[in-house]
Amino acid sequence: MKLELLTALNEERAARRAAIVVTDMSSGVQRLIKKHDGFGDDPLFDELDKRFRSSKSGMIEDENGQAFFLTVSVPPPRLVIIGAVHISQALVPMAQLAGFDVSVVDPRTAFASADRFPGADLCAEWPEAYLRDKPFDPFTAVAAVTHDPKIDDLPLQTALSAGCFYVGALGSRKTHGKRQDRLLSAGVSEDAFQRIDAPIGLDIGASSPAEIAVSILGSVISALRQKPTS
C-alpha cells in the first residue's frame, strides 16, 4: 500500500466519509474509491455500490475471473432522535442494540433528563447547539418526534440538506401537511420534502410507544441496508 493512499483513506475516515480500497490480488495494485466523489464510471460499480450498503469487506472476481479484495470503510451509523419523549425511551436501547450510535436532543430539560435516559448520549439543548458540535452527515439517521415545530423543523431541514440516509417525522397526515407548508415556504424543495418518512415508521400497526420505536427502527434499518425503492 502506498502511504499516500493510506493517508487519503484515513482522511476519509476522519471526516466520516465512506471509502473502499480495491486491491488487485494478482498485481497488488491498489486504488481508493471515495464514495463522496462518486464512482458511477467504475467497472466494479455494482459490487462497490453493494459493498457500500452492506459495509462488508470481501474478495470478488470480475467477469474475466480477476480477483480483487475490497476493504470497505464505512462510518458507524448514527441515530439522532429529536425529542426525549416516551417513544425515545424505548428507541434508544433498541437502536443501541442494533449497533447505532444514538443521541437524544431536546431543549426541554424536564424531558431530557439522565433519569429518563440512563446510558444515552443526551443533549438538553436546542438542535442548533447540538448541530454546531455534531453536524449531520449521510451516515446519520434523524427521527424528529417532539410534535413541536419549534424543535423539529430546523433539524429536519438540516437533515435533508445534509443527505442523511434517513429522515423521519412523527405526526398525523394533517400535522405533516402543515409541516409541508412550513418547510416549503422555508425553501425546502418538494423532492427533498418527499424524502421525509411520515407518518413515521414501518406500517405494522404499532400503537404503544415501544411498538412505534420498533417501527421507526425498522424504517431506519431499511433505509440503511436496502436500495431506495423509487
Partner: peptide, 20 residues
C-alpha cells in the same frame, strides 16, 4: 459490521508509523 471502531486505531497507527 465493519465500522471504524474495528479498524480505526490500526490504520491511523500504520500511517503514524510510516510517516515517522
Amino acid at each position: 459490521m465493519a465500522t471504524y471502531s474495528d479498524t480505526d486505531d490500526v490504520l491511523a497507527t500504520a500511517a503514524t508509523w510510516a510517516q515517522s
